[in-house]
Design a protein around this nucleic acid. Structure first.
Lengths: 138, 138
DNA sequence: CCAAAGATTGGACTTTGTCTAATTCCGGAA
DNA sequence: TTCCGGAATTAGACAAAGTCCAATCTTTGG
């Protein structure tokens, strides 16, 4: 969870490196995602991006998040049936989910280890292993 | 994953044991959930329950699933952002999720071990640890 | 600088799930 | 058995997240 905020040219390079054309709206969204290091939902991103001047539509936010996800720039975090969160950290890691507040925190994959993963049927591959530790106030 | 189909009196006893009044509709829903051993979504349950005669409303299906979940009769499985699945198996276990087909399979908790769970902030307790192994055809 | 390819847009639409007020059901007491 | 009050069910309106579409606007390679 680095606090580094990318500069505009860095963001452009980042998108290009993933084969994404750096349009104005995409840069705004990337800025929001990579600027802070939180787990944000689409509606939060829509709000943040349009804080100063309304300049990005709902459709574009959804299009862009799906594009970023497909191109491996961000990861989806599915812990809340109500909305998907997006995680700018694409390193292997897991999540701590506070079911009272909705807060999501990363747990590095180095810390958490799983053993005993079953063998897969032939022709099947593991796409990823997600561990969600659900916690709450006592 | 036992194939045992509960008899009607057994279902009634099961509900009563969990403090749930055994109404006609609740028994129908319990029958669908515990009869087959699949992971079903609310809309599938609604369809199955009304296959012969329409007799249970959408509202009741949702009410009942939430009630069963709160009373510990079933568990929610959150793997697909589009819909929640309900799992009649309340033993500790994890899931294999086929992202192509949407198929969900259980993995016994005995098989899978996690090490390195972080210490929680004081006053926090772990509600549960969910592991989802996402797989797909090569 | 121009045209084609690609991106963005508002708004309608879909889907999952919740809410509400009115009705119906159920179980216990007499 | 009948009656009563609380609990359960219901239709349908509603809400929120996300998708789709056809029209418009940008971007970019040549």
């Amino acid at each position: 969870m680095k606090a580094t905020s990318y500069s505009r040219p860095e963001l452009i390079a980042l998108l290009r490196r993933h084969g994404v054309a750096p349009t104005h709206q995409r840069l705004e969204i990337a800025h929001v995602l990579f600027g802070r290091c939180e787990h944000l939902a689409a509606d939060q991103i829509l709000t943040l991006v349009n804080e100063r001047h309304a300049e990005t539509s709902k459709a574009t936010v959804y299009n862009t998040l799906n594009l970023f996800r497909d191109r491996g720039l961000i990861r989806e975090v599915i812990v809340d049936p109500k909305r998907v969160f997006y995680d700018p950290n694409t390193q292997p890691h897991h999540h701590l989910y506070n079911i009272d507040t909705g807060e999501i925190t990363d747990i590095g994959a180095e810390v958490l280890a799983v053993s005993g993963l079953p063998e897969l049927p032939p022709g099947m591959v593991t796409e990823g292993v997600d561990i969600i530790v659900r916690i709450r106030a006592l």
